[in-house]
């Protein structure tokens, strides 16, 4: 009985050794489930400075003024001055360098205003504004900064072409240091 089992035991033992020897070559699992293009479209909401990611639709500052009054003014103020005591940043106003830059004076790309309002504003009515309303609100914030006119239409094509003052005085430390510190 014992002698008959021996070859089997040896095989098991040999098998164990092989698995340990190969352990370093065992690939990590690949458990990601593929998702559809429609799902990617639904989750991928980042707007880039070149306008990629912007939805269809359009708006003007004229239309945005009313939306701003309803959705934004209670915290950011009628003129967009903000309320830094409550850490509500200024959207517009004379550039105050350092801690209290306004959005209009410090953000290098107008597309980021659309992106951020769509993500996170207003905090108690999140992700409820239509694309047209978002274009109009973006236009009104830019208008408060004297960057677009009341009637200038903003959409997928025109919003990325808006030039922000800060584009002329924004630099990336990563670009300066990358070659020296990159991992």
């Amino acid at each position: 009985m014992f002698s008959r089992l021996q070859p089997a035991l040896l095989l098991i033992f040999a098998g164990t050794l092989a698995a340990i020897a190969d352990a370093g070559e065992i690939e990590p699992p690949r458990l990601g489930q593929q998702i559809s293009e429609a799902d990617v479209e639904a989750i991928g909401t980042t707007v880039f400075p070149d306008g990629s990611g912007l939805p269809q639709g359009s708006g003007t500052a004229e239309l945005g003024r009313e939306i701003y009054g309803e959705q934004c003014a209670s915290c950011h103020g009628n003129t967009g001055a903000g309320d830094m005591k409550n850490t509500v940043p200024p959207l517009a106003g004379k550039p105050k360098k350092g801690a209290d830059w306004s959005t209009g004076a410090s953000w290098p790309y107008a597309t980021a205003i659309f992106d951020y309002v769509r993500r996170a504003m207003p905090p108690r009515n999140l992700k409820q504004l239509s694309s047209d309303e978002l274009y109009s609100l973006t236009a009104y914030i830019l208008h408060m900064n004297g960057i677009v006119t009341l009637t200038q239409q903003l959409d997928q094509e025109t919003l990325p072409k808006v030039t922000m003052p800060a584009a002329g005085y924004f630099s990336s430390k990563w670009d300066k240091l990358e070659s020296r510190i990159r991992p």
Partner: peptide, 22 residues
């Protein structure tokens, strides 16, 4: 993407008044 937190909140203002991010 130059998101909101890359556009003011998490940037520095250099001595010459320019903004440095990332």
């Amino acid at each position: 993407a130059f998101t909101k937190d890359e556009s003011r909140a998490y940037t520095e203002t250099l001595a010459d008044g320019s903004i440095e991010g990332f």
